[in-house]
């Protein structure tokens, strides 16, 4: 079944014809060519595909593209103001060496931003670790990811994002 979908992705209108079974992540990667959002598993656990839909972090591998009809989607590509001005979470990941191979990074960053906001910019280490339940990283051992998120929370507050 072919269906037309239209949504806003990173502030710009995006539309296309998809199959009913097309996942949001497939729409982003294959139809829009936005390959920053990754797929690392087929059972909704790894979190490499996390994006924001209407301001909430979700796994784009576990939602049909048609379910996002009319939604506001934010992906890793839409975070930075410019190449020189990264989002404070991106900056904190760089400062704290919170990424190695980079594959889990887009999902990590998107989850982390949502986490900071949901906790009103107030986080401690156990909370960060618990809140990362839906994101797997095989490289960093999480140590520097946790550090980066703790560092980003006040930076996001200060930047008003």
């Amino acid at each position: 079944m072919t269906i037309s979908v239209a949504m806003t992705v990173n502030g710009k209108p995006a539309s296309g014809k998809v199959e009913a079974r097309t996942l949001l992540v497939q729409f982003l990667r294959e139809h829009l060519g936005m390959t920053g959002t990754h797929v690392g598993c087929d059972t909704s656990q790894c979190g490499a595909c996390v994006v924001h839909v209407d301001g909430k972090s979700i796994k784009s591998c576990t939602i049909l593209a048609v379910q996002a009809e009319g939604s506001n989607v934010l992906t890793i590509e839409g975070l930075a103001e410019s190449a020189d001005k990264l989002h404070p979470m991106q900056e904190a990941f760089r400062e704290n060496h919170a990424l190695q191979c980079g594959f889990c990074t887009p999902g990590m960053v998107m989850s982390a931003i949502d986490m900071v906001k949901r906790h009103d910019y107030q986080l401690d280490e156990p909370t960060v670790r618990r809140e990362l339940e839906g994101n797997l990283c095989r490289c960093t051992g999480y140590h520097n990811i946790v550090k980066a998120i703790l560092a980003a929370a006040p930076a996001m507050k200060a930047a008003g994002v």
């Binding site: 990424l99 594959f103 887009p106």
Partner: peptide
Amino acid sequence: EDQRFLTGTGRY
């Protein structure tokens, strides 16, 4: 290498 990985512009 971080810039491209952090902005979704790495190429796998």
